[in-house]
Simulated scan of single mutants.
Amino acid sequence: MNSSAPQIGFDRFIQLDWAVAALNVRAGTAGLDDLNALLDAAGLGAEAKKKTRTVLNRLWLEPRAELVDFADRGIAIHKTQPAVAVAALCWGMAVATYPFFGKVAELVGRLSAIQGDCAAAEVHRRMSEIYGEREGTRRMTNMVIQSQASWGAVERVERGKRVIRRASTAIENDELTAWLIEAAVRYAGKPVSVTSLQSLPVLFQFILTRPLAYVVSNSPTLDLRFEGPSNQFVALRVPL
């Protein structure tokens, strides 16, 4: 599923309002001028603005071919359920689009699961083990953590040395729940155990309150698979 996905690409700090503006452009409720105005107001230079737009293009404006339908379904949820947290839609799209973003989220979620916080140095160390010991890995990991702070998921304290979870957001909409699960499955690149869905580290910011096996079984894009009498897995449905 991630075979054509870039290994690294989320290399800029992305404020939540920029991501939401890109979402609204795709939804047809805002124009590119509105997005550009936000970037200009942030004081970004020409090169920084260009690179930021590249991230936002992949995120919402020009998703990869295999994610176009996924993005459009996220936009449909936004249009029919405007009260749904737009941060959840941006998070799901980032996880599905950028494996690097997803891996940072997974590590922060796993390392902070017990005490609610973790050392940024430990996140950096594990990202370096996966993506290599180079300055780009550290810088981009910082960009993702900073972005996740802007999106309401974490708080950076002690001059960024520690990362603290913020209060989780309850997801009570079936369509958004299924869409976020699909984002996690796309990130994982393989079927995911249904019993693990409530505590997936990559979705640590959210509490999935709905009956998940029921939600998955009613989703047109997800399949519920059985391996033995008690092991259920969720996978992407293969188009006929």
Rank of each mutant, 00 (worst) to 15 (best):
I130T: 15
D117S: 14
G92I: 11
G136I: 09
L224Y: 01
T80W: 04
N231P: 00
F101T: 07
T221L: 03
G109C: 02
K161M: 09
G132H: 11
E106L: 09
A105F: 03
V108K: 02
A19T: 09
L111F: 14
D11M: 07
R53D: 03
L200H: 09
G43S: 08
T177M: 14
T141E: 13
T169S: 12
A188C: 06
F226G: 00
I207N: 13
A27Q: 12
T97P: 05
G132V: 11
A41W: 06
R162V: 12
I8E: 11
T195V: 15
R225W: 02
L32I: 14
V202G: 02
A21K: 05
L208F: 07
A183R: 00
R159A: 14
A83K: 14
T195S: 14
A30M: 14
Q232G: 00
L23V: 05
P239W: 10
A21W: 04
V238I: 12
Q146Y: 09
F204Y: 14
L61D: 10
E135H: 13
A22T: 13
K79M: 01
E227A: 14
F226Q: 08
L32M: 14
G43P: 10
M127Q: 02
R186M: 06
L203F: 05
R134S: 09
V95D: 08
V68I: 15
A42W: 09
N24F: 07
G43D: 08
F226I: 01
V215G: 01
I207A: 13
A120Q: 10
L59K: 03
K51E: 15
A170I: 10
V157C: 12
T80E: 13
R12V: 06
Q146G: 11
T137V: 11
F233W: 04
L236W: 01
T97H: 03
E172N: 15
S230P: 00
F100G: 05
R225K: 13
F233I: 00
P63S: 01
A170E: 15
G132Y: 12
A121G: 01
V234D: 01
N218F: 12
A96Q: 04
D69V: 12
A21N: 03
A188D: 05
V194M: 06
E129F: 10
E66K: 04
T54G: 00
R53F: 08
V194E: 03
T141N: 13
H124D: 15
R126F: 08
A71S: 12
R73G: 05
C118V: 04
P220M: 10
N57R: 15
M127T: 02
L212N: 02
E122D: 14
T209R: 15
R12S: 04
S4P: 04
G43V: 14
A213E: 05
V25Q: 07
G189E: 03
R73L: 05
A5H: 07
A76M: 15
H78T: 00
